[in-house]
Amino acid sequence: MNLKLCDNLVYARPNGGRIKLPVEVIASIHGYIQNDRHKPEGGGVMLGRYIIDSQDVVIDKISFPMPGDRATRTTFFRKKRAHQQVIDRAWEASNHTCTYLGEWHTHPEPHPSPSSIDDTNWKRKLKNDIVDSDSLFFLIVGTSEMRMWEGHRRSRTITMLKLL
């Protein structure tokens, strides 16, 4: 992967805010990169916080593939209950500040783009997931770069975010 593990990634949101992916989170994802042809996709949920009086968001932690998740070279389906327990524990441990922000998964391609399955799943999440925000974030980790999208719950539009 071409990303330096000493750098945070910061993406520009369409509303003028930013979303920060700290180096610690990047490092924890690094082991799931599909850099050999037999490695299956990995994924989980992203947890973090909205910065008060701004449009900025920080991803503080992620969940990792768990028993019961299903993965092949080109698919990842997470088991809801196990990941929901991670979300609930983080929410309680943070005094209700660390919340569900969205999903992440890997792709076996250098410059990842959402598949039709990703697009369908993301739109379903925008419609059905119960969250306090109008946005959900979706990170795809490729073999050369990480790309982030923001989905808007009201309009069901999904926009690729620009890396700053």
Rank of each mutant, 00 (worst) to 15 (best):
L101Y: 00
T75P: 01
D119E: 14
K61Q: 14
K127G: 01
V25R: 02
D7P: 01
M1G: 12
S115D: 08
F64L: 15
P114M: 15
S155C: 09
L126C: 08
M46H: 02
R70M: 12
K20C: 12
T143G: 02
V23G: 00
H30D: 15
L5Q: 06
L164M: 13
P22F: 01
N8V: 03
E41G: 04
V10G: 02
L5R: 10
W91H: 13
I33Q: 08
S113H: 06
D7C: 09
H38D: 14
P40I: 10
K39C: 10
Q85D: 12
G42D: 05
I62L: 12
D132H: 04
I51N: 04
D36I: 04
K39I: 11
V58N: 08
Q34F: 04
K80M: 06
T143D: 05
I26P: 02
T75Q: 07
G16Q: 07
G68T: 08
L136Q: 10
G48M: 10
A71C: 08
N121P: 00
R73W: 03
P40Y: 06
G151Q: 07
A82Y: 00
A93I: 09
H152W: 10
L163H: 08
V58L: 14
M148A: 12
L164F: 05
R78L: 15
T75E: 10
Y100V: 05
H105C: 07
N15L: 09
G17H: 02
V45M: 08
G102I: 09
